[in-house]
Design a binder for these strands. Sequence first.
DNA 1: CCATACTGGACTAAGATAGTCCCATATAGA
DNA 2: TCTATATGGGACTATCTTAGTCCAGTATGG
Lengths: 156, 156
Amino acid sequence: MLRISKLTDYGTMILVHLAVHQGRLHSASDVAAGTRLALPTVQKLLKLLARSDLVRSVRGAEGGYVLARGPGSISAADILDVLEGPLSITECSTSDSRCELEDGCPVGGAWQKINRGIRGALGEITLADLAHPPREFPLVDLSGRTGRIRQRIPTS
Amino acid sequence: MLRISKLTDYGTMILVHLAVHQGRLHSASDVAAGTRLALPTVQKLLKLLARSDLVRSVRGAEGGYVLARGPGSISAADILDVLEGPLSITECSTSDSRCELEDGCPVGGAWQKINRGIRGALGEITLADLAHPPREFPLVDLSGRTGRIRQRIPTS
DNA sequence: CCATACTGGACTAAGATAGTCCCATATAGA
DNA sequence: TCTATATGGGACTATCTTAGTCCAGTATGG
Protein backbone atom coordinates (compact mmCIF):
# COMPACT_ATOMS: atom_id res chain seq x y z
CA MET A 1 0.00 0.00 0.00
CA LEU A 2 2.91 2.28 -0.37
CA ARG A 3 2.38 3.38 3.14
CA ILE A 4 4.62 5.52 5.24
CA SER A 5 4.90 4.87 8.95
CA LYS A 6 3.09 6.86 11.59
CA LEU A 7 6.41 8.18 12.81
CA THR A 8 7.13 9.62 9.39
CA ASP A 9 3.73 11.23 9.40
CA TYR A 10 4.40 12.69 12.84
CA GLY A 11 7.85 13.77 11.72
CA THR A 12 6.30 15.63 8.84
CA MET A 13 3.90 17.37 11.18
CA ILE A 14 6.86 18.43 13.28
CA LEU A 15 8.74 19.75 10.28
CA VAL A 16 5.69 21.64 9.10
CA HIS A 17 5.36 23.12 12.55
CA LEU A 18 8.96 24.28 12.44
CA ALA A 19 8.41 25.65 8.95
CA VAL A 20 5.34 27.62 9.93
CA HIS A 21 6.94 29.07 13.05
CA GLN A 22 10.33 29.86 11.65
CA GLY A 23 12.94 32.22 12.99
CA ARG A 24 13.23 31.01 16.53
CA LEU A 25 14.28 27.93 18.47
CA HIS A 26 11.67 25.44 19.59
CA SER A 27 12.13 23.04 22.45
CA ALA A 28 10.74 19.55 22.14
CA SER A 29 8.05 20.50 24.66
CA ASP A 30 7.01 23.47 22.54
CA VAL A 31 6.69 21.30 19.48
CA ALA A 32 4.77 18.64 21.38
CA ALA A 33 2.33 21.27 22.60
CA GLY A 34 2.04 22.82 19.16
CA THR A 35 1.41 19.57 17.36
CA ARG A 36 -0.47 17.78 20.13
CA LEU A 37 1.85 14.82 19.77
CA ALA A 38 3.18 12.92 22.79
CA LEU A 39 6.35 14.46 24.16
CA PRO A 40 8.54 11.32 24.16
CA THR A 41 7.64 10.69 20.55
CA VAL A 42 8.46 14.26 19.59
CA GLN A 43 11.77 14.03 21.42
CA LYS A 44 12.66 10.86 19.59
CA LEU A 45 11.79 12.31 16.22
CA LEU A 46 13.56 15.60 16.77
CA LYS A 47 16.67 13.72 17.78
CA LEU A 48 16.47 11.78 14.55
CA LEU A 49 15.85 14.87 12.46
CA ALA A 50 18.68 16.75 14.15
CA ARG A 51 21.08 14.01 13.17
CA SER A 52 20.20 14.69 9.56
CA ASP A 53 20.84 17.95 7.78
CA LEU A 54 17.21 19.00 7.90
CA VAL A 55 17.11 20.30 11.44
CA ARG A 56 19.74 21.94 13.60
CA SER A 57 19.80 21.73 17.37
CA VAL A 58 21.15 23.94 20.11
CA ARG A 59 21.88 22.29 23.43
CA GLY A 60 21.53 23.63 26.91
CA ALA A 61 19.06 25.95 28.54
CA GLU A 62 17.26 28.11 26.00
CA GLY A 63 18.25 25.58 23.40
CA GLY A 64 15.98 23.90 20.91
CA TYR A 65 15.51 23.03 17.25
CA VAL A 66 15.29 24.99 13.99
CA LEU A 67 15.04 24.05 10.37
CA ALA A 68 18.52 23.93 8.91
CA ARG A 69 17.28 25.25 5.56
CA GLY A 70 14.30 27.04 4.14
CA PRO A 71 11.12 25.00 3.74
CA GLY A 72 11.41 25.43 -0.02
CA SER A 73 14.71 23.60 0.00
CA ILE A 74 13.51 20.53 1.87
CA SER A 75 11.75 17.98 -0.28
CA ALA A 76 9.36 15.20 0.61
CA ALA A 77 12.02 12.78 -0.60
CA ASP A 78 14.48 14.31 1.86
CA ILE A 79 12.01 13.78 4.67
CA LEU A 80 11.37 10.18 3.74
CA ASP A 81 15.08 9.51 3.41
CA VAL A 82 15.69 10.70 6.93
CA LEU A 83 12.68 9.14 8.61
CA GLU A 84 12.42 5.87 6.72
CA GLY A 85 15.87 5.34 5.33
CA PRO A 86 16.65 5.46 1.64
CA LEU A 87 13.40 4.65 -0.04
CA SER A 88 13.07 1.61 -2.20
CA ILE A 89 9.85 0.07 -3.17
CA THR A 90 11.01 -3.53 -3.14
CA GLU A 91 13.59 -5.33 -1.10
CA CYS A 92 15.61 -6.35 -4.12
CA SER A 93 16.06 -2.73 -5.10
CA THR A 94 18.08 -1.92 -2.01
CA SER A 95 21.76 -2.07 -2.68
CA ASP A 96 22.80 -4.39 0.13
CA SER A 97 20.35 -7.19 -0.45
CA ARG A 98 21.18 -9.54 -3.25
CA CYS A 99 18.20 -11.07 -5.00
CA GLU A 100 18.84 -14.70 -5.69
CA LEU A 101 15.90 -14.77 -8.04
CA GLU A 102 17.24 -11.95 -10.13
CA ASP A 103 18.16 -14.06 -13.14
CA GLY A 104 14.73 -15.52 -13.61
CA CYS A 105 12.88 -12.49 -12.28
CA PRO A 106 10.54 -11.44 -15.06
CA VAL A 107 9.70 -8.17 -13.43
CA GLY A 108 13.14 -7.03 -14.43
CA GLY A 109 13.32 -4.07 -12.18
CA ALA A 110 10.04 -2.50 -13.15
CA TRP A 111 9.18 -1.73 -9.56
CA GLN A 112 12.56 -0.16 -9.12
CA LYS A 113 11.93 2.05 -12.12
CA ILE A 114 8.54 3.00 -10.79
CA ASN A 115 10.22 3.73 -7.51
CA ARG A 116 12.66 6.10 -9.12
CA GLY A 117 9.79 7.84 -10.87
CA ILE A 118 7.91 8.32 -7.64
CA ARG A 119 11.06 9.38 -5.88
CA GLY A 120 11.66 11.99 -8.53
CA ALA A 121 8.17 13.33 -8.02
CA LEU A 122 8.64 13.49 -4.28
CA GLY A 123 11.85 15.39 -4.82
CA GLU A 124 9.79 18.11 -6.45
CA ILE A 125 7.48 18.58 -3.49
CA THR A 126 8.85 20.83 -0.81
CA LEU A 127 8.10 21.30 2.83
CA ALA A 128 6.59 24.62 1.82
CA ASP A 129 4.13 22.73 -0.39
CA LEU A 130 3.27 20.44 2.51
CA ALA A 131 2.60 23.41 4.74
CA HIS A 132 0.32 25.01 2.16
CA PRO A 133 -0.79 22.16 -0.05
CA PRO A 134 -2.44 22.86 -3.39
CA ARG A 135 -5.98 21.68 -3.85
CA GLU A 136 -4.70 18.50 -5.39
CA PHE A 137 -1.49 16.92 -6.51
CA PRO A 138 -2.61 15.86 -9.95
CA LEU A 139 -1.87 12.73 -11.85
CA VAL A 140 1.53 11.79 -12.66
CA ASP A 141 3.22 10.68 -15.82
CA LEU A 142 5.02 7.39 -15.58
CA SER A 143 4.27 6.60 -19.18
CA GLY A 144 7.66 6.63 -20.78
CA ARG A 145 8.64 10.14 -21.68
CA THR A 146 11.86 11.47 -20.27
CA GLY A 147 13.07 14.55 -18.54
CA ARG A 148 12.10 16.81 -15.75
CA ILE A 149 8.72 18.35 -16.08
CA ARG A 150 9.18 21.16 -13.66
CA GLN A 151 12.07 22.84 -11.99
CA ARG A 152 11.88 23.15 -8.29
CA ILE A 153 11.02 26.69 -7.30
CA PRO A 154 12.65 27.59 -3.99
CA THR A 155 10.12 29.37 -1.89
CA SER A 156 12.60 30.74 0.57
CA MET B 1 10.19 4.20 2.29
CA LEU B 2 7.10 3.60 0.31
CA ARG B 3 7.86 -0.04 0.22
CA ILE B 4 5.66 -2.83 -0.99
CA SER B 5 5.81 -6.19 0.74
CA LYS B 6 7.73 -9.17 -0.56
CA LEU B 7 4.48 -10.96 -1.18
CA THR B 8 3.33 -8.18 -3.49
CA ASP B 9 6.61 -8.39 -5.33
CA TYR B 10 6.19 -12.15 -5.67
CA GLY B 11 2.59 -11.69 -6.72
CA THR B 12 3.71 -9.35 -9.45
CA MET B 13 6.22 -11.91 -10.66
CA ILE B 14 3.44 -14.45 -10.81
CA LEU B 15 1.17 -12.13 -12.75
CA VAL B 16 3.95 -11.30 -15.18
CA HIS B 17 4.56 -15.01 -15.63
CA LEU B 18 0.90 -15.54 -16.44
CA ALA B 19 1.00 -12.57 -18.79
CA VAL B 20 4.02 -13.82 -20.69
CA HIS B 21 2.66 -17.36 -21.03
CA GLN B 22 -0.90 -16.52 -21.86
CA GLY B 23 -3.49 -18.71 -23.49
CA ARG B 24 -3.34 -21.76 -21.30
CA LEU B 25 -3.98 -22.76 -17.73
CA HIS B 26 -1.12 -22.86 -15.27
CA SER B 27 -1.12 -24.92 -12.10
CA ALA B 28 0.46 -23.51 -9.00
CA SER B 29 3.31 -25.97 -9.42
CA ASP B 30 3.93 -24.75 -12.96
CA VAL B 31 4.07 -21.18 -11.79
CA ALA B 32 6.35 -22.05 -8.89
CA ALA B 33 8.73 -23.78 -11.26
CA GLY B 34 8.58 -20.95 -13.77
CA THR B 35 9.20 -18.22 -11.21
CA ARG B 36 11.47 -20.20 -8.87
CA LEU B 37 9.31 -19.17 -5.95
CA ALA B 38 8.43 -21.60 -3.16
CA LEU B 39 5.33 -23.61 -3.97
CA PRO B 40 3.35 -22.86 -0.78
CA THR B 41 3.90 -19.17 -1.28
CA VAL B 42 2.78 -19.36 -4.88
CA GLN B 43 -0.31 -21.30 -3.85
CA LYS B 44 -1.18 -18.70 -1.27
CA LEU B 45 -0.75 -15.83 -3.69
CA LEU B 46 -2.65 -17.47 -6.52
CA LYS B 47 -5.54 -18.14 -4.17
CA LEU B 48 -5.52 -14.49 -3.23
CA LEU B 49 -5.33 -13.33 -6.82
CA ALA B 50 -8.09 -15.70 -7.88
CA ARG B 51 -10.41 -14.16 -5.32
CA SER B 52 -9.93 -10.86 -7.09
CA ASP B 53 -10.96 -10.19 -10.64
CA LEU B 54 -7.42 -10.29 -11.95
CA VAL B 55 -7.04 -14.06 -12.18
CA ARG B 56 -9.53 -16.81 -12.89
CA SER B 57 -9.16 -20.34 -11.64
CA VAL B 58 -10.38 -23.71 -12.83
CA ARG B 59 -10.63 -26.42 -10.24
CA GLY B 60 -10.00 -30.09 -10.51
CA ALA B 61 -7.54 -32.15 -12.47
CA GLU B 62 -6.13 -30.24 -15.44
CA GLY B 63 -7.23 -27.09 -13.70
CA GLY B 64 -5.15 -24.03 -13.05
CA TYR B 65 -5.03 -20.27 -13.31
CA VAL B 66 -5.28 -17.72 -16.12
CA LEU B 67 -5.33 -13.97 -16.26
CA ALA B 68 -8.92 -12.84 -16.25
CA ARG B 69 -8.15 -9.92 -18.57
CA GLY B 70 -5.43 -8.88 -20.95
CA PRO B 71 -2.21 -7.63 -19.42
CA GLY B 72 -2.90 -4.21 -20.87
CA SER B 73 -6.06 -3.95 -18.79
CA ILE B 74 -4.48 -4.72 -15.44
CA SER B 75 -2.78 -1.79 -13.78
CA ALA B 76 -0.13 -1.63 -11.11
CA ALA B 77 -2.73 0.02 -8.91
CA ASP B 78 -5.04 -2.97 -9.42
CA ILE B 79 -2.27 -5.30 -8.34
CA LEU B 80 -1.49 -3.28 -5.24
CA ASP B 81 -5.16 -3.06 -4.34
CA VAL B 82 -5.47 -6.83 -4.41
CA LEU B 83 -2.21 -7.74 -2.72
CA GLU B 84 -1.93 -4.96 -0.17
CA GLY B 85 -5.43 -3.73 0.30
CA PRO B 86 -6.58 -0.29 -0.79
CA LEU B 87 -3.46 1.77 -0.80
CA SER B 88 -3.14 4.78 1.39
CA ILE B 89 0.07 6.41 2.28
CA THR B 90 -0.82 7.38 5.82
CA GLU B 91 -3.04 5.81 8.39
CA CYS B 92 -5.28 8.84 8.66
CA SER B 93 -6.08 8.63 4.96
CA THR B 94 -7.85 5.32 5.34
CA SER B 95 -11.55 5.76 5.64
CA ASP B 96 -12.17 3.74 8.78
CA SER B 97 -9.58 5.34 11.02
CA ARG B 98 -10.48 8.66 12.51
CA CYS B 99 -7.60 10.99 13.17
CA GLU B 100 -8.01 12.67 16.50
CA LEU B 101 -5.30 15.13 15.58
CA GLU B 102 -7.06 16.20 12.45
CA ASP B 103 -8.03 19.63 13.68
CA GLY B 104 -4.56 20.73 14.60
CA CYS B 105 -2.85 18.69 11.92
CA PRO B 106 -0.87 21.16 9.88
CA VAL B 107 -0.09 18.68 7.14
CA GLY B 108 -3.68 19.03 6.10
CA GLY B 109 -3.89 15.96 4.02
CA ALA B 110 -0.85 16.68 1.88
CA TRP B 111 0.28 13.09 2.09
CA GLN B 112 -3.14 11.95 1.06
CA LYS B 113 -3.00 14.21 -1.96
CA ILE B 114 0.43 12.92 -2.84
CA ASN B 115 -0.96 9.44 -2.41
CA ARG B 116 -3.72 10.09 -4.89
CA GLY B 117 -1.20 11.44 -7.34
CA ILE B 118 0.95 8.36 -7.05
CA ARG B 119 -2.07 6.12 -7.23
CA GLY B 120 -3.13 7.81 -10.43
CA ALA B 121 0.28 7.23 -11.91
CA LEU B 122 0.20 3.59 -10.94
CA GLY B 123 -3.18 3.29 -12.60
CA GLU B 124 -1.49 4.19 -15.86
CA ILE B 125 1.08 1.42 -15.68
CA THR B 126 -0.15 -1.91 -16.93
CA LEU B 127 0.94 -5.46 -16.42
CA ALA B 128 2.11 -5.34 -20.02
CA ASP B 129 4.44 -2.50 -19.07
CA LEU B 130 5.75 -4.51 -16.15
CA ALA B 131 6.43 -7.47 -18.40
CA HIS B 132 8.32 -5.31 -20.87
CA PRO B 133 9.35 -2.27 -18.92
CA PRO B 134 10.55 0.85 -20.71
CA ARG B 135 14.10 1.94 -20.12
CA GLU B 136 12.88 4.20 -17.40
CA PHE B 137 9.68 5.47 -15.90
CA PRO B 138 10.43 9.18 -16.01
CA LEU B 139 9.75 11.83 -13.50
CA VAL B 140 6.40 12.57 -12.43
CA ASP B 141 4.49 15.77 -12.08
CA LEU B 142 3.01 16.41 -8.69
CA SER B 143 3.41 20.12 -9.12
CA GLY B 144 -0.15 21.33 -9.23
CA ARG B 145 -1.52 21.07 -12.72
CA THR B 146 -4.66 19.05 -13.23
CA GLY B 147 -5.91 16.35 -15.49
CA ARG B 148 -4.82 13.09 -16.91
CA ILE B 149 -1.66 13.24 -18.86
CA ARG B 150 -2.11 10.07 -20.79
CA GLN B 151 -4.99 7.79 -21.56
CA ARG B 152 -4.45 4.18 -20.80
CA ILE B 153 -3.92 2.24 -24.01
CA PRO B 154 -5.24 -1.29 -23.76
CA THR B 155 -2.63 -3.60 -25.22
CA SER B 156 -4.92 -6.57 -25.58
C1' DC C 1 25.38 25.52 40.75
C1' DC C 2 21.19 24.27 38.85
C1' DA C 3 17.36 24.25 35.88
C1' DT C 4 16.65 23.57 31.19
C1' DA C 5 17.23 21.13 27.16
C1' DC C 6 19.41 18.10 23.80
C1' DT C 7 22.03 13.08 23.02
C1' DG C 8 22.33 8.39 22.83
C1' DG C 9 20.61 4.30 23.49
C1' DA C 10 17.93 0.57 25.83
C1' DC C 11 13.68 -1.51 26.37
C1' DT C 12 8.83 -3.43 25.80
C1' DA C 13 4.33 -4.40 23.82
C1' DA C 14 1.76 -4.87 19.96
C1' DG C 15 1.17 -5.66 15.30
C1' DA C 16 2.45 -6.98 10.59
C1' DT C 17 4.77 -10.18 7.53
C1' DA C 18 6.49 -14.40 5.57
C1' DG C 19 6.07 -18.81 5.12
C1' DT C 20 4.15 -23.43 5.91
C1' DC C 21 0.69 -26.88 6.47
C1' DC C 22 -3.81 -29.31 6.64
C1' DC C 23 -8.21 -30.69 5.17
C1' DA C 24 -12.20 -29.98 2.16
C1' DT C 25 -13.94 -29.72 -2.51
C1' DA C 26 -14.03 -30.08 -7.55
C1' DT C 27 -12.99 -32.39 -11.92
C1' DA C 28 -10.82 -35.21 -15.77
C1' DG C 29 -9.81 -39.47 -17.16
C1' DA C 30 -8.93 -44.45 -16.61
C1' DT D 1 -16.76 -45.25 -9.78
C1' DC D 2 -12.17 -44.45 -8.30
C1' DT D 3 -8.10 -41.90 -8.21
C1' DA D 4 -4.81 -38.46 -9.21
C1' DT D 5 -4.59 -33.72 -9.77
C1' DA D 6 -6.00 -29.25 -8.73
C1' DT D 7 -7.92 -25.31 -6.33
C1' DG D 8 -10.36 -23.20 -1.77
C1' DG D 9 -10.28 -21.75 2.81
C1' DG D 10 -8.17 -21.09 6.63
C1' DA D 11 -5.11 -22.00 10.84
C1' DC D 12 -0.75 -21.53 12.65
C1' DT D 13 4.01 -19.95 14.00
C1' DA D 14 8.38 -17.59 13.99
C1' DT D 15 10.37 -13.40 13.03
C1' DC D 16 10.69 -8.68 12.16
C1' DT D 17 9.07 -4.00 12.39
C1' DT D 18 6.85 -0.30 14.59
C1' DA D 19 5.31 2.66 18.22
C1' DG D 20 6.04 4.40 22.26
C1' DT D 21 8.44 5.11 26.66
C1' DC D 22 12.20 5.86 29.72
C1' DC D 23 16.75 6.75 31.66
C1' DA D 24 21.43 8.26 32.31
C1' DG D 25 24.71 11.48 30.19
C1' DT D 26 26.16 16.15 28.42
C1' DA D 27 25.92 21.02 27.27
C1' DT D 28 24.67 25.79 28.47
C1' DG D 29 22.53 30.15 30.22
C1' DG D 30 21.64 32.68 34.26
